[in-house]
Design a protein around this nucleic acid. Sequence first.
DNA 1: CGCGTTGCTAAGCGCTTGCTTAGCTTCGCG
DNA 2: CGCGAAGCTAAGCAAGCGCTTAGCAACGCG
Lengths: 200, 200
Amino acid sequence: MSAVTSPLAWEHVQPAAARRLLTGAIDAFAERGFQATTTRDIATRAGMSPAALYVHYPSKERLLFEISLYGHRAALEILTAANDGGSPADRLRAMVSAFTSWHAEHHTIARVVQYELAALSPEHFAEVATIRRAISTLIEQVLTDGVTNGTFKVDDLPGTTLAVLSLSIDVARWYDPTRHPAAEPLGTLYADLAHRMVQA
Amino acid sequence: MSAVTSPLAWEHVQPAAARRLLTGAIDAFAERGFQATTTRDIATRAGMSPAALYVHYPSKERLLFEISLYGHRAALEILTAANDGGSPADRLRAMVSAFTSWHAEHHTIARVVQYELAALSPEHFAEVATIRRAISTLIEQVLTDGVTNGTFKVDDLPGTTLAVLSLSIDVARWYDPTRHPAAEPLGTLYADLAHRMVQA
DNA sequence: CGCGTTGCTAAGCGCTTGCTTAGCTTCGCG
DNA sequence: CGCGAAGCTAAGCAAGCGCTTAGCAACGCG
């Protein structure tokens, strides 16, 4: 586990059977998507009968929500930590690097977080949407700060904010640890690319 | 329909009922995903009974393949057209602009093209993968040309190629015509961002 | 010990899925 | 007019779905 990305430990999920179901669901949702994953598949991955799932979670959707919520919170946390101190350029580079590395290192959870939003209930979607707006605001603010002190040149602020985030998020779509570089060098490359996009 | 993006007409799909099924399937797959879309839903959108679908297509997967194949071909075509003539910078800007605009303007098909690959049969996937490699090669070549003539500075060629493509592709994920700028200005913004990423 | 709680399984319910079958109508064409 | 092809529908099949029910073993605690 790298230093720049949060450990994403699941120890807080108790008991162990509930944790096995959750991590099994992450793998299944990431591989096949939420709709194509069956509760029987999740239960089998956790080494249980299908009915045991409902002892720990009231529905398949709830399992998705727990994963999505925890994943969004983890992503916001590593961004917030990276935003601490330094010039706008330093903060932008640290945030893009951390956010990119996180999407590479945790690409299974990241895939669920980024591509299964439509499967959430309206109420659950609203809850993670709040976190998504906070993430977006962090990037927009550092770009604003850089423009204000003259180190950045940004023509379209919302458009560029979206582009910077988009670049990191799409890593979850294509990243394959067997075929691509380690997460940390990728983060450095993307920090460089994002910095160039906004440099004055 | 803008000048930089191909018209994406479906007139070649005959008879009209087959075309209605295909366009209905695009909308349904883009909205809900392949797995969550039922053949009954597709048939209803085309104004027919569920069985009528099988008069024109042998399976739901085949419908996806026809959409995916045509979409990939259209994307490759507009990229190839934009690659014609000028400096590496001109060609890169033209390709990124066209590719981005295409993903925004045709974001429903683009969503199917980019996010439903896993639902294709292995044989059908192999066929579109060939087109995807051709797309990637076009971008890699223009970056190579720019590095060679000294107008670009690229540290990691495959990584930067992927990043440039990634930036445009992710547009399909978030683009909403009711909330975002028109496709053509977006293409111009992204051409600028991509150019800055590689400028010497 | 007695007994409620926790965690699990076997069985299965009601429903929906992709797709098939049988049969009807419409049409072009000799 | 006769007839095969094309295009469609009503009905339904086998399989698989999310989830429920009934019941059992293990455990903590008075």
